[in-house]
Nucleic acid binder design. Structure first.
Lengths: 355, 355
DNA sequence: ACCTGATGCTAATGCGCATTAGCAACTCGG
DNA sequence: CCGAGTTGCTAATGCGCATTAGCATCAGGT
């Protein structure tokens, strides 16, 4: 596919003007509800134009509108990796569902930037053929986002919103308060008597990952000071050898393991069953996310991040930023939604030391 | 959100022309590899322009290109219902995955028409603010599609491809051969000795539903003539009372039940277990689709429709239709992929009559 | 010297909108 | 009658591309 064929011709405002006996400028004014005020077009003329518009089923050409400087209620959606393959679905589907719903409510279409090439294992938003300018604004989705690209967008003044917290200065976002949610669960474990914690997390610099970590570390420090943090076993993992991660957790003597992803928690739970370790009697488990569509066989004590609501709120914020009639206050450019927790059945007091 | 704010200004071909000391026309010719042939621009000039293009990171404005009659490698994607909510995911996710992959390979972006309003329970492609014209062409997804809209598209000459077979004249599509796949499974059951069939299907006029039904009916007629078809119990269902459907199946004395959706099959299997009906010893089950992401607990004898490959092929066909250098033969405008079957464990010979 | 063909570009134009300054005609008040 | 204000539009323009007819210059042949 080198170059596309030219789409077929359709009715234009010029033709509408001929049929209604007015000028193209008048058609445009009527179509955009600018027939009163400065334009001063009488009702009789306006009705005549509206009638022709209706009869012909005229629809404005979005490309012409864009070139004339008017937006088209098209929201770009950029995902830092493919959104639909089975491996990514659990991450992206709830977000896309929220975005789709919000877009529908707002009467917006979504432009998915699937042409973005992969460079060093990650997609690039800025590339030779990027079509950012067809969208009024853009939503960014992904665990880790390229800081240079974020800075580029901010410097360009191109309207966008990141889904999830971002450290880069000037980046508008809607986030989930993973830090507080995590801290609350750690606090519960502490109250139950746990003192030795293991923390298995995704080896990533993504802000949602860092926030969860901060929740763990800061709450432990608050509860038990530096020594409590020293006792914490932190395992950054790529999930490529959970067996080894499990062994490290057991070796540490931790009485509770905090796992970032529900998938990994399921696996650890299987290892526990295999090794005769009873959960939560002998080892408690806390999960900092929820299982995807596959569901889970265990009712983990966990965070329940409102990810669909998150994406929906991000979409609404972008719409507000794009609305010339909406004055978005600076503090509204960064929003954080609370992260509820589910009690579950995998957290109990530590077993009496028997080893 | 009434009207969108104007995006920020960016570098244009005019500015590139100034920097390179040529005209805007020359920049365009160089950018689009038309510097040789009729345009006759020497290599030295061409290199000078390319250098400025590189240094400035210039990207063409897609709206201007569209208005000038050139495509932008943007494929519209229209789903007859929201694509991402949990209830729709099993249907749309594999399709979208195939589309995304093909789009990525082709360097295309996807424009999801989420602004389409819902009329009488279904989305309308043609509406006041449709942005069809921003896309080079469009993919249509859904079980049932509005025939009037399909005819409208055909009459307009707007390039599109339907995912799944469509009866409307002139509609290009890529389909799965549900009829043959279904017939093969019915044939197997017949060979095993089954003579009393029950068929539970979605109450819909969608072509994929009709094709499966044709597969059942035609194969039974072929095997056993009119009397075999007379013996067939056909249950059109909305899935709202599967208990009642199950009772009808049992009352019919059918020795094999053919179920259109994997979800319904799972439910019927539960009813069977509850009622002490052994599958497949006392009742065989054939499923005409596959479970979604949730997986299934039963290894049903079933069709395994290649839905991701289907959508990918449809995307490729659309790309070919859009490519001015690609002469698509009329017979290529309608393609049908074979539908493999999985043997599974739910089909065996009928039990000896014991009732 | 004149004519023809080749070379190196460019001026002009159009795509379909949105916007606005301004023209012609009319009305009213002084 | 004249001037100011109002009404009803419209001509003109620009947005940023892609396309193409055509101009100026040069070289070679007659």
């Amino acid at each position: 596919m080198t170059t596309s064929k030219t789409p077929s011709r359709r009715i234009t405002q010029r033709r509408i003007a001929e049929l209604a006996g007015v000028s193209q400028a008048t058609v445009s004014l009527v179509l955009n509800d600018k027939a009163d005020g400065a334009a001063r077009i009488p009702e009789e003329t306006r009705e005549r134009v509206l009638k022709v518009l209706r009869e012909t089923g005229y629809v404005a050409d979005p490309a012409a509108r864009r070139l004339a400087g008017v937006g088209n209620k098209i929201l770009g959606v950029f995902t830092y990796e493919p959104a639909f393959p089975t491996e990514s679905q659990d991450f992206y589907a709830p977000l896309l569902s929220g975005i789709e719903q919000a877009a529908e409510d707002l009467g917006c279409d979504l432009l998915l930037f699937t042409s973005a090439p992969v460079v060093n294992g990650s997609r690039r938003l800025f590339h030779e053929h990027n079509r950012l300018r067809l969208a009024d604004g853009c939503l960014l989705l992904g665990v880790e986002m390229d800081h240079a690209e974020l800075e580029h967008l901010v410097a360009d003044g191109f309207p966008f919103v990141a889904v999830g917290r971002r450290d880069v200065e000037g980046v508008p976002y809607v986030a989930i308060d993973y830090a507080s949610g995590t801290a609350a669960l750690i606090g519960q474990a502490w109250e139950l008597g746990h003192r030795r914690f293991a923390y298995l997390h995704v080896d990533s610099r993504g802000e949602s990952v860092l926030d969860r970590r901060a929740g763990v570390v800061d709450e432990l420090e608050r509860r038990g000071g530096a020594s409590a943090v020293e006792q914490l076993l932190t395992i950054p993992s790529l999930g490529d050898d959970l067996q080894r991660d499990w062994a490290a957790i057991r070796d540490s003597g931790a009485t509770v393991v905090v796992v970032e992803t529900a998938e990994w928690a399921e696996r650890l739970h299987e290892f526990a069953a295999r090794d005769g370790v009873e959960v939560p009697r002998q080892l408690s488990m806390i999960v900092l996310s929820e299982p995807g569509r596959g569901g889970g066989s265990v009712e983990f004590t966990r965070l329940s991040p409102p990810r669909t609501a998150l994406a929906s709120a991000a979409t609404s914020l972008l719409a507000r930023i794009l609305d010339p009639d909406d004055d978005v206050r600076p503090d509204e450019l960064r929003q954080t939604l609370p992260c509820p927790a589910i009690a579950g059945v995998t957290l109990a007091g530590p077993a009496e030391a028997t080893e």
